[in-house]
Amino acid sequence: MTEDTMSLFEETALNAKNKRVQGLYRTLFMLMTLLLITPVVIILATLVVKGSAVLSIDFLFTDPTDGMTAGGIFPALLGTVWLVTVALLVSVPLGVAAAIYLSEYAPDNWFTRLINLAIINLAGVPSIVHALFGVGAFVIFFGFGTSILAASLTLAIMTLPVVIVATRESLQAVPQAFREACWNMGATRWQTIRKVVLPNSISGILTGVILEVSRTTGETAPVMFTGAAFFLPFLPQSVFDQTMAMSLHLFVVSTQVPHVPEALPYGVALVLIGMVLIMNSISIAFRMYLRGKKKW
């Protein structure tokens, strides 16, 4: 009797084998994960080690000098801010409005499904194709020339599908019961959207937008054909001027200009990646703040 109760909870040979196999897979998956973050760590470490020497307030706020082999990056930094801001001013209202229509108003028929398919495909178009489209449409056809406007519109088209998808997902995360509650009190669709759906999805929408900012910041191909210049001796005065941009500047100082001190391109890259990381951190912090406020 005692022997029986003992053996009831003893490890069998099969248990031991299963445990070994499970341990093996656990280790395998952990190694894969470590492998994944290794490049990130190496990239960041290299940039900090090699680039931090040139970093200073002056570096951020002065012009490049000596044929871009010395001085700062101010025109490129400012240019990127211009490009991203104008692109967002176009893509966010357009994308959010389209997402609201698709999620809250549009009936589920072949036409809406076609639009959805188009949006998904648009998101998969390579950036160089967007760039060439931008040249054809905005630079030549609309006659904006190579300018901030043309480059920003190109970026806007590129970011549009992501803004739409992110917005639509946050709208659809709002429980249907809230909408029904409103409709059954006699609220119109718009009153429902305005008073209940948007306030409860705004955190997701803003997160999507901020993540888009960080992606747009690094784009090179779409801007180099449509509005970003190799080097400009002056700052842009309006959206019809050309501008320098961080991403293109990094490409130029690392490959196109001779006798650049080694630290300079690393410094530019460090600032660029720093901008992106700061954006992402703001986005994550913001999302945590807004999530903490809502409860259901």
Binding site: A177, F178, E180, A181, C182, W183, N184, M185, G186, A187, Q191, K195, V196, N200, K294, K295, W296
Partner: peptide, 30 residues
Amino acid sequence: QVRKQIGMVFQRPNPLPISIRDNILFGHKL
């Protein structure tokens, strides 16, 4: 007007994620 004159209560309580006070005033404000 149909929805105003004919109120509906659902199987699963569905208060809006706003204050108790605003829930009561929601329909009235509309």
